[in-house]
Amino acid sequence: MSEVHAARRSRLRSRCSPAGSVAALVSRPANVRYLAGSAPSGGSGPCEVPPGAALLVSHAGDDVLFGHWNPARDPAGPQPGEDGGLRAVTLDGDADPAVAAAEWAARDGAEILAVEEHHLTVARHRDVAAAASGMKLADLGCAVEGQRLVKDEEEIAALRVAAEITDRALGELLESILVGRTERHLALELERRLVDHGADGPAFSTSVATGSHSGLAGHRPTDRRVEEGDFLTVRLGARFRGYRCQIGRTFVIGTSPADWQIELYEVVFAAQRAAREALTPGAEYREVDRAARNVLAAAGHSTALGPVTGRGVGLEIGEDPRLSPAAMGRLGPCVPVTVEPGVHLPGRGGVRIDDTLVVRSPADGGPELLTITTKELLAL
Rank of each mutant, 00 (worst) to 15 (best):
81 G>A: 13
81 G>E: 14
81 G>H: 12
83 D>E: 15
83 D>T: 12
84 G>W: 04
85 G>Y: 05
86 L>T: 06
87 R>Y: 07
90 T>F: 07
91 L>K: 11
92 D>A: 15
94 D>H: 10
94 D>S: 14
96 D>Y: 00
96 D>A: 08
96 D>K: 00
97 P>H: 08
97 P>D: 05
98 A>K: 03
98 A>E: 01
98 A>T: 06
99 V>T: 04
99 V>P: 00
100 A>P: 09
100 A>L: 08
104 W>F: 14
104 W>S: 13
105 A>P: 05
105 A>T: 03
105 A>V: 06
105 A>F: 09
105 A>Y: 05
105 A>L: 03
106 A>F: 07
106 A>N: 03
106 A>L: 06
107 R>S: 10
109 G>D: 08
110 A>T: 10
110 A>P: 04
111 E>D: 14
111 E>W: 02
112 I>W: 00
113 L>M: 12
113 L>K: 04
114 A>N: 01
114 A>T: 04
114 A>G: 06
114 A>D: 02
116 E>H: 01
117 E>N: 05
117 E>C: 07
118 H>E: 12
120 L>M: 04
120 L>D: 08
120 L>W: 01
120 L>Y: 02
121 T>F: 04
122 V>P: 07
122 V>H: 10
123 A>H: 13
123 A>L: 13
124 R>G: 04
124 R>W: 05
124 R>M: 00
125 H>E: 12
126 R>T: 09
128 V>C: 06
128 V>T: 03
130 A>L: 15
130 A>H: 14
130 A>E: 15
131 A>R: 05
131 A>Y: 00
132 A>Q: 00
132 A>I: 08
132 A>W: 03
133 S>H: 14
133 S>M: 12
135 M>T: 09
135 M>G: 05
135 M>S: 10
136 K>E: 13
137 L>F: 01
138 A>E: 08
139 D>V: 02
140 L>G: 02
140 L>T: 05
140 L>E: 02
140 L>W: 02
141 G>L: 08
141 G>K: 01
142 C>N: 15
142 C>Q: 14
143 A>Q: 08
144 V>C: 04
147 Q>M: 14
148 R>Y: 02
148 R>G: 00
150 V>G: 03
151 K>D: 10
151 K>W: 03
151 K>V: 00
154 E>C: 06
155 E>K: 07
155 E>T: 12
156 I>M: 10
157 A>N: 13
158 A>W: 00
159 L>I: 12
160 R>F: 06
162 A>E: 01
163 A>W: 00
163 A>M: 11
163 A>I: 05
164 E>C: 00
164 E>V: 08
165 I>N: 02
166 T>Q: 10
167 D>G: 11
